[in-house]
């Protein structure tokens, strides 16, 4: 083993991270802004945003996310008098940074052979991928609490406290609902989990259907979007980002989208076979296999995002006590039971 890291590998890793954060993250987040508007509009018998045009071309309103970005970037960055300066600026960065980091740890593809070497398509390959992503997601709540505290507004603080309570309630379920399936896979590595599913042709959703629903619910709660949008609650307290304007607010908005992408990515990797396509041995197909891996992973992720988006526009917001009840009294016991049952079954099987 040589200690000199080849320049190729460094460049390739940088390219992969760039792909994950910019290619997948920013593009899908922007695209989701459009999907959110159009999907909600179509299901409510409306047309939705369709006015942004470039030389008269509107492309079904696809330019609206671009218009949003321009607007957010050129708006005044207003910091209220009571705000605690550095913290106020740091909060959105922490939120968005954590979500971005998670994106880079997802397994967009496995290892493929072409032009004489193996290319690992996972941007940051780690044996501790799953707990790391969960930890980074949980760390994102610091951004929210910091934002609420630093803006010097009671509404902001209220939103932050709600956010913290909600996050704790659902992070626990998030991790414990995964316990069973990780026990079966016998690994904490995303890539290994995908390989387990690919080699057996058996997806996690078939092995642990209950865990899939628990994780989906808890995941939806972690993204802080309706019906779990109590930290934001536009119609009542506006929430932790009430004192933010311009791109800082935009970063919080994007965090929600990024977190949705991450949750859907984790579900894809652990429950929907990751990049695997049934009946195809992608790892033996070289460059084409690599492309198919990324396409299949992103495709599955988009389907899940579509489902989450539909849920978000179907259900009204929970009341806060209902929200905590759902988390602590329903999801948590169910996921623990699921884990215990899984452990017993695996024990008896062996």
């Amino acid at each position: 083993m040589s200690f000199a890291i080849p320049l190729n590998d460094v460049l390739f890793t940088a390219a992969k991270i760039l792909f994950a954060v910019v290619g997948v993250g920013l593009n899908i987040a922007g695209f989701l802004g459009w999907v959110e508007r159009k999907q909600s509009a179509v299901m409510q018998d409306r047309i939705g945003a369709n006015r942004a045009s470039i030389f008269g071309v509107t492309l079904l309103g696809l330019f609206h996310p671009i218009a949003d970005a321009i607007k957010l970037l050129t708006k005044e960055d207003f910091v209220p008098k009571g705000a605690r300066g550095p913290l106020h600026g740091l909060a959105p960065m922490i939120s968005l940074g954590c979500a971005m980091f998670c994106l880079a740890a997802l397994p967009y593809g496995g290892a493929v052979q072409f032009s004489g070497r193996a290319w690992d398509l996972q941007p940051i390959a780690l044996s501790m991928g799953v707990p790391l992503v969960l930890a980074a997601l949980a760390f994102g709540v610091h951004g929210i609490v910091m934002a609420g505290y630093a803006s010097g507004s009671n509404y902001g603080l209220l939103g932050a406290l709600r956010g913290a309570a909600q996050m704790i309630a659902y992070e626990v379920c998030l991790a414990s609902s995964l316990a069973g399936i990780l026990f079966i896979y016998g690994t904490l590595d995303f890539q290994e989990a995908v390989l387990w599913q690919a080699s057996r042709g058996l997806w996690g959703i078939a092995v642990q259907p209950l865990a899939f629903f628990l994780f989906l619910t808890a995941g939806a709660a972690v993204t802080k979007r309706a019906p779990f949008d109590l930290p934001e609650g536009e119609s009542e307290i506006v929430g932790y980002h009430i004192e933010y304007s311009g791109m800082k607010f935009g970063m919080f908005m994007m965090t929600d989208f990024f977190e949705s992408i991450v949750i859907c990515g984790v579900i894809t990797a652990l429950f929907l076979g990751g990049w695997a396509i049934p009946g195809l041995d992608l790892q033996a197909m070289g460059a084409l296999g690599g492309l198919l891996m990324v396409a299949s992973f992103v495709g599955k992720m988009m389907l899940l995002l579509f489902l989450l988006m539909q849920l978000r526009w179907t259900l009204p917001r929970f009341r806060f006590d209902q929200l905590l009840d759902l988390g602590w009294k329903n999801l948590l016991p169910l996921s623990l039971l699921n884990f215990i049952a899984t452990a017993w079954v695996v024990y008896l099987w062996r």
Partner: peptide, 24 residues
């Protein structure tokens, strides 16, 4: 237990979504 109702609600919204998409 809420779960059944969620799916019933989703059925309504999905029906609207797909019917409207088809009409568009």
């Amino acid at each position: 237990i809420y779960l059944v109702e969620v799916w019933r609600g989703l059925a309504v919204t999905f029906r609207h979504l797909f019917v409207n998409l088809f009409r568009h």
